[in-house]
């Protein structure tokens, strides 16, 4: 299981969640933030601080947003597991689906 960030984060990127994450597993993309599904430890610190309620526990993602689970994961297909967002600058990329929609 993991937490995921849904599309209401797009173009918001408040980053309050990044400060809360104890394991630094929330990565910044060009238009939204992404939670690394393997690096997340399910602690839930990110969920209540999001101003736009974009963070969901995987089981609790509303049906209309289920595709966001895949969106979060797909961001890391090429990146793999860097082991911490601070180690790498990812702010100029996005999940493939976002790049396709808004080239």
């Amino acid at each position: 299981m993991t937490y995921v960030i849904a599309q209401s984060c797009v173009d918001v990127k408040d980053k309050a969640c990044v400060d809360e994450c104890p394991v630094d597993c929330i990565y910044e993309g060009k238009r939204m933030l992404y939670i690394h599904p393997d690096e997340c430890v399910d602690c839930g610190a990110c969920e209540p601080v999001c101003p736009v309620e974009a963070v969901f526990y995987e089981d609790d993602v509303p049906e209309e947003l289920v595709h966001c689970v895949e969106i979060n994961a797909s961001f890391f297909t090429e990146l793999g597991s860097p082991g911490g967002a601070a180690k790498i600058d990812t702010s100029q990329r996005d999940a493939p689906v976002l790049e396709r929609v808004h080239p």
Binding site: E20, C21, P22, V41, C43, G44, A45, P48
Partner: peptide, 9 residues
């Protein structure tokens, strides 16, 4: 555990 607890990690 509390949200953000190191125990999760």
């Amino acid at each position: 555990w509390c949200p953000g607890c190191g125990d999760y990690a």
